[in-house]
């Protein structure tokens, strides 16, 4: 897409376009609007959660051009032209994404607040392709906190999907 320069002297709204879960949106945003707030407040895609709003918890994780990032630390205006995938774009109640199904199967959540971020992060991590062991999954998922402490089952769910449906060996205790 063509490069643009905005020589605005005063802060104002800037037109951007984003493809979100396959649908093109043309939006006017103030430069200080985070991608997270745009998704939740403007587009009402509230599956993406605001936990800490400081990049410390991972609840706001979405995929931008296929790459997982913290949407709370991303300014929407800087993502002009990008393709965004949120939890709403991964599956439907009748047709769950394999990770969504695995999280249900493995009881990989309690309150569920971190779950959309966990699942988007896991999708990103799997496409990055650097995790093959439980220790590596745990390390590369460490940006997603779960205050209910469902970590063992979260790793089970991810490992299950990575092993293409084969049952994962559960850890006795962690």
């Amino acid at each position: 897409m063509p490069e643009m320069t905005f020589a605005s002297a005063a802060p104002d709204e800037i037109p951007i376009s984003l493809t979100i879960n396959g649908q093109l949106h043309r939006l006017d945003v103030t430069p200080w609007t985070s991608l997270l707030d745009l998704l939740r407040e403007t587009l009402h895609l509230t599956g993406t959660k605001k936990g800490c709003d400081h990049g410390q918890c991972g609840a706001c994780t979405v995929l931008v051009d296929g790459t997982r990032i913290n949407s709370c630390l991303a300014l929407a205006v800087m993502k002009d032209g990008a393709e965004i995938t949120t939890i709403e774009g991964l599956g439907t109640p009748d047709n769950l994404h394999p990770l969504q199904a695995a999280f249900v199967e493995h009881d990989a959540f309690q309150c569920g607040y971190c779950t959309p971020g966990q699942i988007c992060s896991a999708v990103g991590m799997m496409s990055e392709g650097h995790a093959s062991t439980r220790a590596e999954i745990r390390e590369l998922m460490s940006g997603n906190l779960c205050r209910c402490g469902a970590y063992t089952n979260i790793v089970d769910a991810i490992e299950d999907v990575m092993q293409d449906g084969r049952p994962a060996v559960r850890e006795a205790a962690e």
Binding site: T5, S8, A9, T30, W32
Partner: peptide, 15 residues
């Protein structure tokens, strides 16, 4: 967050 203006330059020199 305190409002600010946003510029997207196309070269290092411009930036």
């Amino acid at each position: 967050m305190t409002p600010f203006a946003y510029v997207r330059p196309t070269s290092v020199a411009e930036a």
